[in-house]
Design a protein around this nucleic acid. Structure first.
Lengths: 115, 115
DNA sequence: TTGACACATACCTATATGGGTATACCATTG
DNA sequence: CAATGGTATACCCATATAGGTATGTGTCAA
């Protein structure tokens, strides 16, 4: 089997840096495709393809205005990612990091890590 | 170009459901590979490969104990994802959703969406 | 109607995958 | 030392990209 489709869920859609960039640009408000093309310095077809992926996972919405298509973020599609991460947030607090380092050092000194 | 390597960053590493599952299992504490293999009902080589990806992006750490390798989560690797999402969190609040829906309906009724 | 815009889609290519199977590696035990 | 247990790695395959180029489609202007 190959990797899962980029359109299978928000996790996959957002794994691509260009798509995150698009969302970041759209976070400022609705924008037509060419705007994104210029800012991203990417070929127009590529931008359209990335937008399609984002559309399929529900991360953006379109609206036709004349010959332009205005895209905007629909952040609700990203919530599942945030929800999943929520369970880990407490694990990267400074205090925990410090404790972690200490335990690590101790353990490594005890039995010599391999990685 | 093909898709970016799964080991290129946490976003890509975590895009795979099985790898999220592994992290979830490890969230309960350190565990040897075979434990994961049993719980996931996946071939051992596959689990090892997923663990390798997670290791390369720093999402897990290993420690040798006898002939076992105990893995555990290092959530700090996931922080960049949370940081990126932080900018969107306010966008999925209930009130915003409601407003969003209303605007959507109005616009669609005005100029007929295509998607 | 013709032409120019603004986008989307169709193909093609190289690449990196996830899964499967066989096997190599290291430590412990007899 | 040989045998076994616990993992990692080497290959093989099918698949889905991301990017590039060419072209189709819908809309507005002259």
């Amino acid at each position: 089997m190959a990797r899962a489709a980029t359109t299978s869920d928000a996790f996959n859609a957002v794994a691509e840096p260009r798509r995150r960039q698009i969302l970041d640009l759209l976070a400022g408000g609705e924008r037509p495709v060419n705007d994104l093309v210029e800012e991203m310095r990417l070929d127009q077809p590529l931008v359209s393809k990335h937008l399609r992926v984002l559309r399929e996972v529900g991360a953006v919405r379109v609206r036709d205005v004349g010959r332009q298509r205005l895209y905007r973020v629909d952040a609700r599609a990203l919530k599942p990612i945030a929800d999943w991460l929520a369970g880990y947030e407490q694990l990267w607090t400074e205090r925990f990091e410090a404790l972690d380092e200490v335990l690590d050092d101790l353990k490594e000194r005890q039995d010599g890590d391999r990685d």
